[in-house]
Simulated scan of single mutants.
Amino acid sequence: MSEWWTYRLSDFLMFSPGTYWRLVELYNRDVWPAQLVALATGLASLWLAGTRRAGAGRVLAALLAAVWLWVGWTFHWQHYATINWAAPYFAAAFGIQAVLLVGLCILSRDAHPPSPGVVTRNLGWLLAVTGVVLYPLAGLLAGHPLSQAEVFGMAPEPTALASLGLLLASGQPPSRALRYLLAIIPTLSLLVGAATLWSMAG
C-alpha cells in the first residue's frame, strides 16, 4: 500500500480530462444560445463598472447575482454533478454568493458609486477584462475547440475572475469588510478550478 505522501493531486481526480471537456461541450450545446446573453451581460457589466452614474453599482450587483445563480444551477447542479460528487456543494456556494450580491444591491445607499484607487481600479479592470473577454480565448490557444469555450456567466472560473475584477473596478462595495466577504467564494472557486486544471494536466 502506497504512503499518503506518494499520491499526486491527479490521483484524487474523479474523472478524466476528456470526460470533463466533453461535459463542457455538451453543457454549451444544451444551453445555447445563452452564451450570447452571457456575453451581452459581461459587456454591460464592464460598462457599469466604468460609469459613475447613480445606481450603477446596484444594477451591477443585480446582474452579478443573476449570473452566479445561473452558473450554480445550470453548470454545477445540472451538469457538473453528474461527474463530481462535490458539485452540489459548489452550487450551494454559488447560491450564497448570489444572495450576498442581492444584499449588496438592496443595502447600497450611495447615490453614486465610490471611486476606487488607481491600483485597485487597474487590477480590477485587468481581472474583469480577462474574465469576460480573454478567458474564452485562452481555451482556444490551449487547443480546445470553440464548443468547449468557458465563458463568463456560463462557467465558474471566468465568472469568479470577472466578478472580482468588476467589484474592484467599480469600487463596490465601499466597505472593505464587505469587499473581503464578497471575495471569499469567488477566490475559493478560482482555487478549486485551478487545482482541477492542474490535476487534469498532471
Rank of each mutant, 00 (worst) to 15 (best):
V192H: 14
Q148C: 13
S199Y: 11
P113T: 08
Y80W: 04
W77I: 00
W125P: 09
A177M: 14
E25L: 07
P116K: 09
L134G: 03
Q97Y: 01
S175M: 07
S175P: 07
V37L: 13
L188N: 06
V31P: 02
G57C: 01
L69A: 10
T196N: 12
S2Q: 11
W125Y: 12
Y27T: 08
P174R: 13
A155Q: 11
Q172V: 13
T19R: 15
H144S: 10
G57K: 01
L26W: 05
V151I: 15
F75H: 03
D11N: 14
V24K: 09
D30E: 13
E157P: 07
G18R: 12
W47S: 03
L191R: 09
E3S: 10
S115I: 08
W5N: 13
S10V: 07
F15H: 13
P186H: 10
A201S: 15
A138Q: 14
S170Q: 11
Y180F: 15
L182I: 08
T82W: 06
R58G: 05
P17Q: 11
H76L: 00
A56S: 12
A44M: 07
A34C: 02
N122W: 12
Q172N: 12
A142N: 11
T130N: 11
P114R: 05
L100A: 05
I106Y: 06
I83D: 07
P33N: 05
R22T: 11
E25F: 08
G117H: 06
L140D: 08
F90L: 12
Q97W: 02
A111E: 14
S175I: 10
E3H: 08
L9G: 02
V129L: 15
I185P: 03
A66E: 00
Q172H: 14
G139W: 14
G139E: 13
E25T: 13
L23V: 12
S10Q: 14
M200V: 11
R109E: 13
P173I: 06
R176W: 14
E157L: 03
P113G: 07
S199M: 14
A138W: 13
A169M: 11
A160N: 06
C105E: 05
Y20D: 07
A149Q: 15
V119M: 09
V119P: 01
G18S: 11
Y180W: 15
W4H: 08
A56C: 01
H76A: 02
V24W: 05
Q172I: 14
G55I: 00
